[in-house]
Design a protein around this nucleic acid. Structure first.
Lengths: 202, 202
DNA sequence: GTCTATAGTAGGATAGAC
DNA sequence: GTCTATCCTACTATAGAC
């Protein structure tokens, strides 16, 4: 039935997801939603949670093998492509939107989202070790910015696939910038540190 | 009634927005939605369109005065704060999510979203003039990436305000990186060009 | 143009048979 | 645990009075 909930979110969106559509997708009776989960919202929350745990576990090895920002982005793009095909990230984006005005859904979705952010944060901490970026940048904040941006792109791609692809390419080019930055040597590092420090006092 | 539609989206989210809630917010009768707009979706599309046109016009002067990436981000943050308080960008995010599985809403929302992207693109083109970034980066793609990321952050902030704030800070620090990059002089520019070229052949 | 009234449909939730 | 049956509510959309 958890799978049925995901299917319903994929096929009908948040607005078209109900106890009835979920039950139909799962091939069971509508009353079971309430018997097992109490409400539709709780079922949706549980389904997102479980699905995300599985996806994160599935990509765990990939993330662990990442040694640079570009590789992180590369994994991100693969993940984007495969999850888009399965509609998984779209489901998360849907529920994230629904959670805005649904207090019952907010906390479960926040926790689910945190699963991705935590994974990205660990990679960032490893990849940025020794980099001047790590000294000044807030790594958890950066991780959240990245996963948020990812969701935004996902939503955008849903209504404009071509534009979404171009946006992804552009981000790829930005990642090159940051890496080059990191490889410019001590002079650049010094300039960078002082500039960021100055900017921080603004 | 267009305002009523926005109020309804703000207060009840996409799932709770109906001809009835819109009419109640506007202080009129529910039947008028169908008389004037034919369907709820078309009213919502029109409302988003009009509201976004007004907001874009309102920030037009600000965008025109921007001369650097950091200033662009600064305007973006002000915009974020003021629109968050009014709930406007959240409305756009809500409808963007709804449009994923609603063909009738997809095109109007895509066009609405394009209003912001076009504005950002113009600023980028001006700010990045003469920069090595502009030579290799796809400016329209970058503009779409930025507005997408903005929406993602907006959604995220809705369920985790503290995390959203930290993510915004982190992006601010990244912008400093890019600017420093731009100011490192010809050596860095040369390295950058060759690296991006190489990366493009990957 | 705006209202009331209403038809028809879909969803949340529960009671009770099996 | 799973089903049928059912109640109540809320929604879209239309017809028709004013």
């Amino acid at each position: 039935m958890l799978d049925g909930a995901l299917d319903a979110l994929r096929d009908h969106g948040v607005t078209g997801t109900s106890a009835r559509t979920i039950a139909a997708a799962a091939g069971v009776n509508q009353a079971l939603v309430f018997y097992h989960y109490g409400s539709v919202d709780e079922l949706v929350g549980a389904a997102c949670r479980q699905a995300t745990e599985q996806r994160v576990a599935h990509y765990s090895d990939r993330f662990a093998a990442v040694t640079s920002l570009r590789e992180l982005l590369q994994v991100g793009r693969e993940l984007h492509a495969s999850e888009l095909a399965q509609g998984n990230v779209s489901v998360l984006a849907q529920t994230l939107a629904a959670a805005q005005s649904n207090a019952r859904l907010a906390e479960p979705i926040r926790a689910t989202f945190q699963l991705w952010t935590t994974e990205i944060e660990a990679v960032l901490r490893r990849v940025l070790a020794g980099s001047p970026i790590a000294e000044v940048a807030d790594v958890p904040g950066l991780a959240q910015a990245i996963s948020s941006a990812f969701v935004g792109l996902e939503l955008f791609e849903g209504i404009d696939p071509d534009g979404g692809r171009r946006a992804m390419e552009a981000i790829d080019q930005l990642a090159v910038l940051v890496e080059v930055m990191d490889e410019l040597g001590p002079l650049a590092t010094r300039v960078l540190r002082s500039r960021i420090k100055k900017a921080g006092k603004r």
